[in-house]
Nucleic acid binder design. Structure first.
Length: 152
DNA sequence: GCCAACGTTGGC
DNA sequence: GCCAACGTTGGC
């Protein structure tokens, strides 16, 4: 089982939105970055994922998800009415993929980016490094444990 | 709302 | 294949 972090702007899709879905699952569509796409294709059923709220008042990790469906074609790229439309992604030659995520846990509080930056054990975690814009990141077992320890 | 950082595009 | 221009991300 591998560990990951996925960012979402809570104004667009938050962990509360995920909790309130009838099945508590959601297709993670709209990723339009090759590196992030490649990470999604590496994901396997029941991998664990930190849910990160970005571009908001209190940026940070808000809970845990799991992978409930392996990568498949993100057909929102073929939908000209979608904000994620990409005319260069075709049915014959799809460019973008998505996974389905499921709700696991919402933390009692946000583990903020600010406090993550203060943990020396996380110094080489991509999330806390300057200029990081990647919306999907791999997380090591040690990083995962260090982050969860913030809650105790 | 600002702006630094970064990825992508496209002309050459 | 280089690289300037441009668009986007995301913290602050």
């Amino acid at each position: 089982m591998r560990l990951w972090l996925m960012k979402s702007e809570p104004d667009v899709f938050s962990i509360d939105d995920l909790m309130q879905r009838p099945t508590q699952t959601e297709p993670w569509e709209g990723v339009r970055n090759y590196q992030a796409r490649n990470f999604m294709r590496e994901m396997q059923l029941d991998d664990r994922v930190f849910f990160y709220h970005s571009n908001c008042k209190e940026a940070g990790i808000v809970g845990v998800m799991n992978i409930v469906k392996n990568a498949y074609v993100d057909d929102s790229a073929q939908d000209s009415n979608s904000p994620y439309y990409d005319p260069k992604s075709t049915i014959e030659n799809p460019r973008w993929w998505r996974v389905d995520v499921g709700f696991v846990e919402k933390f009692s509080r946000v583990i903020t980016l600010r406090e993550l930056k203060e943990i020396s054990a996380l110094a080489d975690f991509q999330l806390v490094q300057r200029g990081n814009r990647l919306s999907i990141l791999p997380v090591t077992q040690m990083q995962w444990e260090n982050i969860l320890n913030q809650l105790t």
